[in-house]
Computed example of a mutant assay.
Amino acid sequence: MNMAMKRLLGVVGGLALVFSVSGASAAPKDPRVLVEEVTTELFTVVKAHPADSEAYYTGVDKVLDKVVDFRYIAAVVMGRDAWGKATAEQKTRFAEVFKNGLVRSYAKGIAGYANSAIKVVGVDQNAQNAKRAVVRQEVAHEGAVHQLSYTLRQVGEDWRLINVVLNGVNLGQSFSSQFTAALRKEGGDIDKVINNWLSEV
């Protein structure tokens, strides 16, 4: 992973984990409300545990697991062709490897952003698909203001994060390009790409 992507993950790691909804609710909450509730939950984890402890990673993982649609993102990253050719076992393995890598990367980035000034500047519902929404944020950190937008899809009564765009850089597309390049490098061998994914990104 190049330095620009590492910096990108650092920022997103502290900020992308802000969407969740309780399955017990009668109806999905407004995404703006979810941002406020889960941001509080996330930074409670940040302040409760040493950043290099397993308890810390476990806490971050629990927040992420309620928020991110890992299997959906894994399918998008692999691409329609590779996902279609992959076995059920390969799909499951890649989703797990992808999740583990992101959880660790995000967890390492969270601590430095706990005191950033974060505000929601807009929530856009998809006019053609009521189960899609984009939440836009501004994040003030160390004198810079970052523009973020989060794409969510509604799954049952939950909103799940499926993509992040930071200052114009689309993370989903970036990971997809990396998978395509790795697959080409490995001569189309999906198992090798999965086995080497963490070193490739």
Rank of each mutant, 00 (worst) to 15 (best):
K131V: 05
V33F: 10
P28H: 02
A130H: 05
E36A: 14
Q128G: 10
L183A: 02
E37L: 11
D81S: 08
F19I: 13
V77A: 00
N129H: 05
A181T: 11
G101M: 01
G122L: 03
G156M: 07
F98H: 06
S22T: 13
K119D: 04
H141Q: 12
G79P: 08
R32Q: 12
V45H: 01
G188C: 08
V103S: 10
V21G: 14
R80W: 06
R80C: 03
K99S: 01
V193P: 01
V11L: 15
A48K: 15
L198R: 09
V63P: 05
R104Y: 08
N167H: 03
N126T: 02
V134N: 05
V164T: 11
L34S: 15
F98V: 07
R104M: 10
F70M: 04
L42H: 02
Q173D: 15
K131E: 15
T39S: 14
G23A: 14
T92C: 05
W83K: 04
S25Y: 11
L64T: 02
V135S: 00
E89V: 10
V18F: 13
V11W: 04
V103F: 08
V145W: 03
L102M: 12
E200M: 12
K119H: 11
K85H: 03
A24F: 11
A4N: 06
K192S: 14
V12W: 08
L15G: 02
L34I: 11
Y106I: 03
F19N: 04
N163P: 00
K131D: 15
V67H: 13
V103A: 08
L34V: 05
L9I: 07
R104T: 06
G172V: 01
V18D: 06
A182S: 13
R32D: 14
G112N: 10
V76C: 02
V45M: 07
